[in-house]
Simulated scan of single mutants.
Amino acid sequence: MKTVQKGNWFEIIIPEKWTTFTLDDLLRTSWKVPKKMLHQFKMEKKVLLNGALPDWHKKLISGVKLQIELFTPEAYGVIPTYHDIEILYEDEHLLVLNKPAGMDTHPNEPTDTNTLANAVAFHLQANGIKLKPRHIHRLDRDTTGAVLFAKTALAGAMLDRMLEKREIKRTYLAIVEGLLHKKHGTINKPIGSDRHHPVRRRVSPTGQTAITHFKVLKSDRNENNTLIQCHLDTGRTHQIRVHFSDIGHPLVGDSLYGGSNIYSRQALHAIKLEFTHPFTEEFISCYAPFIDRPAIFKNIDPSSY
Rank of each mutant, 00 (worst) to 15 (best):
M1K: 09
M1Y: 01
M1L: 09
K6T: 10
I13G: 03
T22P: 04
D25I: 02
L27Y: 01
S30F: 08
L38Q: 09
H39E: 05
H39Q: 12
K42Q: 12
K45F: 02
N50V: 05
W56M: 11
K58H: 12
L60T: 02
S62Q: 11
P73D: 14
A75W: 00
Y76G: 03
Y76F: 15
I79K: 11
E86T: 14
V96A: 13
P100K: 13
A101R: 12
A101P: 02
P107V: 05
N108C: 02
P110Y: 04
T113N: 06
N114L: 07
T115E: 04
T115K: 03
L131G: 13
H135E: 01
T143W: 02
A153T: 10
L159E: 12
M162F: 12
L163Q: 14
E164Y: 15
I168W: 06
I175V: 09
L179K: 15
K182S: 13
K183T: 13
G185E: 07
G185D: 08
D194N: 15
V203Y: 03
S204F: 15
G207N: 08
T209M: 08
F214R: 06
L217A: 06
K218N: 10
N222R: 11
N222Y: 02
T226C: 07
H231A: 12
L232F: 09
Q239W: 00
I240V: 06
F244P: 00
H249V: 08
P250Y: 13
G253Q: 03
G253H: 02
L256D: 06
N261K: 15
R265I: 03
Q266G: 02
A267V: 04
L268V: 00
F275S: 13
H277F: 04
E281Y: 14
E281C: 12
S285Q: 10
R293T: 08
